[in-house]
Write a protein that binds this DNA or RNA. Sequence first.
DNA 1: TCTTGACATAGAGTTTACTCTACATTGTAT
DNA 2: ATACAATGTAGAGTAAACTCTATGTCAAGA
Lengths: 123, 123
Amino acid sequence: MEYSIGEFSRLTNLGIHTLRYYEHENLITPKRNSSNRRCYSDKDLAWTYFIKRLKDTGMPIKEIQRYAELRAEGSLTLNERMEMLTVHRESLNEQIKVLQEHMAKLDDKIDFYRQEIERTSLK
Amino acid sequence: MEYSIGEFSRLTNLGIHTLRYYEHENLITPKRNSSNRRCYSDKDLAWTYFIKRLKDTGMPIKEIQRYAELRAEGSLTLNERMEMLTVHRESLNEQIKVLQEHMAKLDDKIDFYRQEIERTSLK
DNA sequence: TCTTGACATAGAGTTTACTCTACATTGTAT
DNA sequence: ATACAATGTAGAGTAAACTCTATGTCAAGA
């Protein structure tokens, strides 16, 4: 299947402006039809979902750009891409750990509030 | 103990400019000495650590501002503050869940790469 | 044919959270 | 007494990631 930018925007939940911006940054590079309109493919769709995953896990655009470059160069860059993902996996692991620690402290604080409210009978 | 802005900056790992900015935004409001220099207290220190925790878990400055307002109003706002923290706790829980899902998908992708590299003997 | 709506580009504007600059004061070591 | 380092204020500048505006093109329906 092929999609216009409008359809693709709905499918991916990315604004039209954002899609053009991503193209400008060489992240998503759809084909063009005879009248120069963007034609997004299913491959673009899968790739866009992956980009969203990288973004949602805190990878900056610059780094995704680098990954996109490697991807465009083909299978000779498989090693390097895997290396990037492995490093990113580590940062993600760390993020989760830190958030879990914060969660524990937050729970302590909430407990403290609960006791304080109890104690001062503001319940 | 009381600290100058320089000392406090070292203690908290927040730049001097950032501390002044936080004060401007009514997040941290140290006393002043006779010559108008900021005097941070240990209470400010504990409060700053907590602000950092809220920030690191994705709470925007605006919301921390609101929390700070309530805090300044005293114990009558304990309920409302606890409510804010409880809501934030939920978002944090959700964040962790989403990141864990991303992690699983990332692991799949890395596995795929590993196989692909193996298969094409680019190892 | 005319108009409308989706699309095109280039470039300006926005938001968040700092970060820095310019310039004036003040406390401290020599 | 003087230099110099830390601090003060006000306001400008920065970076990232969008988001919007102005203006123009083009295919399809009334």
